[in-house]
Amino acid sequence: MSIKILISPSRYVQGPGAIHSLGEQVKTFGQKAFITGGKTALKETRGDIEKSLKEHNVDSVFEVFRGECCDSEIERLKAAATAAGADFIVAVGGGKVIDAGKAVACLMNKPVVIVPTIAATDAPCSALAVIYTEEGVFDRYFILPQNPNLLVVDTAIIAKAPVRFLVSGMGDALATWFEADSCAKSAAKNIPGGYTTVTALNLARLCYDILLEYGEAAKLAVERGVATPAVEKIIEANTLLSGIGFESSGLAAAHAIHDGLTVLEETHHSYHGEKVAFGTLAHLVLEDRPWAEINEVLDFCTRVGLPVTLAQIGVTDPTPEKIMRVAEKVCEPGMMVHNMPFPVTPQMVYNAIYGADAIGKAYLAKR
Rank of each mutant, 00 (worst) to 15 (best):
G225V: 07
A218V: 00
K219I: 01
Y195R: 09
A252T: 01
L212N: 11
I234D: 12
E293V: 07
A252Q: 00
A254K: 03
F246I: 01
A254S: 00
D299Y: 14
G279V: 04
T228I: 02
E287T: 14
T267A: 12
E265A: 09
T239W: 13
V222I: 10
Y271N: 01
S248D: 04
G215C: 09
T267S: 11
E265D: 10
P192N: 14
P192S: 14
L220D: 06
L211D: 12
H268A: 12
C301F: 05
R289P: 02
E274V: 13
K189W: 11
F300W: 13
I257P: 01
L286E: 10
T262A: 07
I294E: 09
G260T: 06
N190Q: 13
E236C: 12
I244P: 10
N238D: 14
V263M: 10
E296D: 05
I257C: 03
S242H: 05
N190I: 11
A237N: 14
D288C: 08
L261H: 03
A217C: 12
V285N: 12
L261A: 02
T239S: 12
S248I: 04
D288L: 07
H258F: 01
L203A: 00
E223R: 06
D259E: 09
I210A: 14
A237W: 12
L206G: 04
A230E: 15
K275F: 06
N190C: 13
R224H: 04
A227M: 01
T228F: 03
E236W: 13
G194M: 09
G194K: 09
D288M: 08
G215T: 07
K219Y: 02
L220H: 03
L251R: 02
G250C: 06
C301W: 05
N202E: 09
A204T: 06
L211V: 09
L240F: 14
A217S: 15
E293G: 03
H255V: 02
L203K: 03
D259I: 01
N190S: 13
G245V: 03
A217N: 14
V263D: 09
A218H: 04
L261F: 00
I235H: 00
S270T: 10
G243L: 08
R205E: 15
T262R: 08
G273F: 04
E223P: 05
L251S: 03
A227N: 04
I210Q: 14
E236L: 12
L241W: 08
A187Y: 14
E274Q: 15
V297A: 03
L298P: 10
V198E: 12
L281C: 07
P229R: 04
E232W: 04
V285M: 14
I244S: 09
Y214R: 15
A277C: 12
V231R: 01
P229I: 01
A217W: 07
A218S: 10
I257Q: 02
L261N: 01
H258P: 00
A204P: 05
L211I: 11
E296Y: 00
I234F: 09
A188H: 08
V297D: 03
W291M: 06
T267H: 10
L298H: 11
A204G: 08
S270C: 10
T199L: 09
V222N: 04
T302Y: 11
L203I: 06
F246E: 01
